[in-house]
Amino acid sequence: MHRLRLSSKALAVVGTALSTAALVSCAALPGVAPGPPAEKSVSSERLELPTPGVDGWSTAAPAKLGFRAGRLEELARHAKSTGSTCYAVLRRGQLARDWNWNQPRETPREVFSVTKSVASALVGIAAADGDLELDDKVARYVPQWRGTASSGVTIRNLLANDSGRFWSSDSDYSRMVQARDRTRYAVGLDQQHPPGTAWAYNNAAIQVLDRVLAKATGQPTDEFAEEQLFEPLGMSHTRLTRDASGRSTNVFFGMQTTCLDIARFGQLFLDKGVVDGRRLLPRRFVTASVGRSSTPLNAAYGYLWWLNRPGELRGALDAVDPTGQPVEPRDGTLVPGAPSSLYAALGLGGQTLMVDPRSRTIVVRIGALSFDETPDYGLADAAEVVTSALR
């Protein structure tokens, strides 16, 4: 079964760079500078989820929710064997079961690139508020790009990862991670390909969204996220972190959260952008993010979400030629045999938020990075819940 994961060689390179950078900047650890606490807006009313059972979630027995309880236990044991610290399965807005190992349920932990999908949602909220439009030129918010080869890049290009901005593994996984001001570093890179002509899993391009959001909303991105997303969803154990400069919010990685908090974010998309009757995201933005491919260059990608749509596939570190095209093109789906409507927010080290709209199931797995013989965890493992544990 195909799994979306890095090769062992690529994982070692990426993991070493990120681990080194984390020690240098502490961006992914509790010592990171979080910035000043956000003031609570009267307008951002906290909405309550269903009758509290476990950390605000109502619960139901796995069998009542249509699961084979024994199979769920097997999948949880497998998740534990891969170094997971928490694992949760939910269906129809209720928690079937969660498991926690070595850390309390409420302890926030790093989820790496799952952060990207949250950054996408923040753009959707800002668009709904009229602060920006997806087809705005990024140069409107980043004056340095005006009159340059990057002047045609749109916010939509940043979300689809087809901006054509400069990318290299050294730049994305070492130099930017170690930069004191990551947003400034990302903004200062050059244009590598014309917008819309090449796809790349481009951390630096995504980090530019921090500048866009801050300029468009008039707030630091982490404060905007707290007021407009985390608080309304009841994600009380979640925060975006800042880099070593204390000025820039990390949006390509760096979010700290829990399994049950990030499940609330998945539920928001499962419910088409609505929580308890309040619309946080436009339905059309949700559809564009997770309901169809955002670019013909990669069927498996929405707006900073991974999709199980069939077509031409691109992975995070696939080799490309000088024009940005894949050296070895491939077609298919990320998880053969799983529903094509399935989508996921994924992060380095097997961090997974999987949503299956067909069965209204959410699976979350968070684990520590490991470079020993611990087995990998991937999207195909999470999909086993809907392909083998549902009756």
Rank of each mutant, 00 (worst) to 15 (best):
A128K: 14
R175F: 12
G124R: 04
F224W: 13
T221A: 15
Q192R: 07
V177A: 15
Q207W: 13
P220A: 13
T217L: 12
L209N: 05
Y185T: 00
F224C: 02
S150V: 00
L189M: 12
R146C: 02
L189W: 07
M176D: 03
E227L: 15
R211V: 10
D210Y: 12
A204H: 03
D170Y: 08
I125H: 07
M176E: 10
N157R: 07
P194T: 05
V177Y: 15
G218A: 10
A214Q: 13
A200Y: 10
G130V: 06
N161E: 13
D181Y: 04
A198G: 03
Q144K: 11
G218D: 09
E133G: 04
R146A: 15
E223P: 00
P195F: 07
V138R: 03
E223D: 09
R140Q: 12
S169N: 09
V187I: 15
A139L: 03
L122F: 06
D135I: 00
S151D: 15
R146K: 13
V138E: 01
G188N: 12
Q144G: 00
K137A: 14
L159I: 02
G218T: 06
Q191R: 10
G196I: 06
A126W: 08
I155P: 01
Q178S: 13
A160F: 07
R180G: 01
F166L: 10
L159D: 03
D135V: 00
N157F: 02
P143G: 06
Q144P: 00
L229F: 12
K215Y: 07
L209E: 05
G152F: 06
A216H: 13
T221N: 09
V208S: 07
L159S: 04
V153W: 11
F166P: 00
T148N: 04
V208H: 11
M176R: 11
L229I: 06
F166Q: 13
F224L: 02
S163W: 10
V212W: 15
F224E: 03
A121T: 08
Y173A: 06
D190R: 15
D136L: 03
L213Y: 12
M176S: 07
G188L: 10
D172L: 12
V138S: 06
A198E: 04
A205E: 08
L132D: 04
D136A: 05
Y141L: 02
K137N: 01
V123N: 05
I155H: 05
D222E: 15
T154Q: 11
W145S: 01
Q178W: 10
T221G: 11
G124C: 06
D135N: 09
D172Y: 02
A127V: 11
A225R: 02
Y201E: 04
